[in-house]
Design a protein around this nucleic acid. Structure first.
Lengths: 127, 127
DNA sequence: TTTGATGCAAATGTTTTGCATGCAA
DNA sequence: TTGCATGCAAAACATTTGCATCAAA
């Protein structure tokens, strides 16, 4: 397997993701990084996002609205998608790992995990 | 709003989805319907799948592998995605609606529901 | 007869890829 | 010096859309 070399572009992407709570799309990442690296190409952004996701340094979220978004927090956690403004918010909540057991009860395969998105109205939109 | 007129193409798509358990992609639907309607176009398949999903007659599944798949069973239910063969299987399981309450406990917005995909190894791949 | 649905092809939006060059090690 | 990463542009995909024609009501 090839060695992974340092690149400031990748570092900038990682820093941006670590600092924002926006759960940006690849294109949004591109727009932001461009401010400090005007010559960065969209291809580089995609390559690095995929690389970081593979390394487990960021999360790639396959949202229910069809968009792919990225999360700088690689620890598995749950997300909330607002039906009105489309925002994706991190949820801090008690573990629901037991649903794997419930799902496995009548199923002959092996359940290793789950991905859950909650949806509804976010604090700002619920009024 | 426009009236929805009967079309044999749409009917064929609906029947195919009702009878299969494959959770096919739009392209797979196209390949199948083509056997009985060789002239049907991919555009028509997409238009009808979207129409049926909007009417609530079929489910559009935004799978974690990034693909969109369709399910002829419009009742909400859970799905399992095999990490090895990529197959999507229906799960029959006890309700886990209570996770909405758990998620809502520390959250100031309104949780209306959730979408969950389970993953692991399907019965055929688990050996 | 009216109007929605179709087939076709072009357009769109997103993501990936090939290649010459730049830069890390 | 070696070879991975980059920028650029083209290519690859998936999905949508415009339009003339077809068919349901």
């Amino acid at each position: 397997m090839p060695v992974i070399k340092y690149s400031r572009q990748r570092e900038a992407i990682k820093e941006y993701l670590a600092q924002t709570k926006e759960h940006p799309t690849a294109d949004t990442v591109y727009m932001h990084i461009r401010k400090s690296y005007p010559n960065i190409s969209l291809g580089t952004v995609y390559r690095n996002l995929n690389m970081l996701a593979e390394q487990g340094e960021v999360l790639k979220l396959n949202c229910q609205d069809g968009s792919d978004r990225y999360d700088g927090n690689p620890k598995p956690h749950y997300h909330f998608l607002c039906n009105k403004c489309g925002r994706v918010v991190d949820l801090e909540m008690e573990s629901i790992e037991h649903i794997n057991v419930i799902a496995g009860a009548g199923f002959d395969g092996r359940i290793e995990g789950h991905i859950t998105f909650f949806y509804g109205l976010c604090p700002d939109c619920k009024e």
